[in-house]
Design a binder for these strands. Structure first.
Lengths: 132, 132
DNA sequence: GTCCCTGCAAATCCTTTGCACTCCT
DNA sequence: AGGAGTGCAAAGGATTTGCAGGGAC
């Protein structure tokens, strides 16, 4: 069993992630945290984020843009990724077919979880294009 | 419009990918190709793979293991990723609910495609565990 | 001859890690 | 005091890129 000790940096990372809805990367989070802790290092941000993932307090996912994104919402949900601006929007489970519907006898093994993301263009980017 | 010129290396990369069903990374492909072209460079493999993706002849996807995988099958399908051995298995669309069912009016934009992969344990790894 | 493609190596991007020091408990 | 956590900088892995030479057309 792992022994945890309090750290102001970890607390700040958790708070910062909780107050954002943009699924930041470690680096984006690092830039925010630096306003409160100018000396925090990127290594510390990565170490704490990975620790929080292990503890199940946050989740980490990739959407194909080359870096990992972090999310304070650990409930099952999906993501919509805008091809144009890169924005990632949460999609509640209710928007998609019931999870259990995915699993059939044809599955070549036992699937516990699945990761899903949609690619497309968000409403904001679509409107910008119409104007020009 | 882009002008293409024949290259034996690109041809070999296409053939190699066509004959494999394991969704190799650029590096794995590089190791195979080197048997035929001992002097080929990894940079050439990456350049050609990205070119083929642009041309729509192959697809590229991430499954969260830190590197990109390439697939000669461009038809819509899904992937099953074994947590234990890392194997990636193709899942035909028929196994999963109709694609159009994913898209509803609630979608915060227009989704053209989606990427889906399941995590779990493949039958082979499950059997190995039972034996020990 | 032109210009695309190659091999090579250096560069870049993202993430992890080793180490000496700091701060919880 | 003991050990988890930190900052820093170096290392690591994956991918891209600049450049000079080679090959397709």
């Amino acid at each position: 069993m792992r022994t945890l000790k309090y750290s102001r940096q970890r607390e700040s990372i958790k708070n910062c992630l909780m107050n954002r809805t943009d699924h930041p990367t470690a680096d984006a989070l690092y830039l925010s945290i630096r306003e409160e802790f100018p000396n925090i290092s990127l290594g510390t941000v990565y170490r704490n984020l990975n620790l929080l993932v292990e503890l199940g307090e946050i989740i980490k996912f990739t959407c194909g843009d080359g870096s990992e994104h972090f999310d304070f919402t650990t409930d099952q949900h999906y993501h919509f990724v805008c091809r144009t601006c890169g924005k990632i929007i949460d999609l509640p489970v209710s928007m998609v077919r019931s999870t259990s519907d995915f699993f059939t006898e044809e599955m070549p093994g036992h699937a516990e979880t699945h990761a899903l993301f949609f690619y497309g263009e968000c409403n904001h980017c679509m409107e910008s294009k119409l104007e020009s």
